[in-house]
Design a binder for these strands. Sequence first.
DNA 1: CCTTTATTCAACCTTTTGGTTGATCACGAA
DNA 2: TTCGTGATCAACCAAAAGGTTGAATAAAGG
Lengths: 114, 114
Amino acid sequence: MQDSRDERLDRAFAALGDPVRRAIVARLSRGPATVNELAEPFAMSLQAVSKHIGVLESAGLVTRTRDAQRRPVHLRPAALEELTAWIDDYRLQHERQYRALDALLERTEGKERS
Amino acid sequence: MQDSRDERLDRAFAALGDPVRRAIVARLSRGPATVNELAEPFAMSLQAVSKHIGVLESAGLVTRTRDAQRRPVHLRPAALEELTAWIDDYRLQHERQYRALDALLERTEGKERS
DNA sequence: CCTTTATTCAACCTTTTGGTTGATCACGAA
DNA sequence: TTCGTGATCAACCAAAAGGTTGAATAAAGG
């Protein structure tokens, strides 16, 4: 599995595009949790939740450690940061673009009036 | 199609989990573009790109206007903002959580030493 | 009108995703 | 060693995603 920045973004954004996985991330923001704990709120098998965690892990959004038989899951805030960075990059570029356009229109109007 | 906040987030995050659609968003951050213009960089049919735009639109990330036969696509920065808001919410909560934990550990160590 | 240009609709196909169940593995406790 | 608990692996299935091609629609330009 290659791991370019684009591929990481693909997996991370796609991972968050599922309500179960977003709920898991939300839960983990309050601290690590085991698979059992994470599965508890959902009306689905433990295995299904385990798969969701696998998806989050391969997206770099969480890590798994070991504690006896348990496999506590931890949030990886750096991955979240990378996502906001990507979004803000283009959101702010768009904003700048519009400010520039407004300025241009204002100058043009000025000329037409004169 | 119901349109709860969760469903919008689902669609928006999932929409960005595709490199073609992220490239389209990146392009649109520099200003509106027609379907033809948006399709130009990709080695795929116009129809496929049109579908991608449809996905972005139903996620609320872009809007389509009309200009003669053309259907210029525009970025909707408010939707991007909603995504960063969601992420930052949990990213910051996680950070606070850790600061609180650190503080607790520090106090405990202090007691053990005394 | 007829043609060209820009785009969408529709049917279809293949791959991926999100779930299931049953078996297996890893560990701690008795 | 055996048992119970926590989690993963594997095989399978239905539904959704992402692409294709061909036909249809909308508007401008001869």
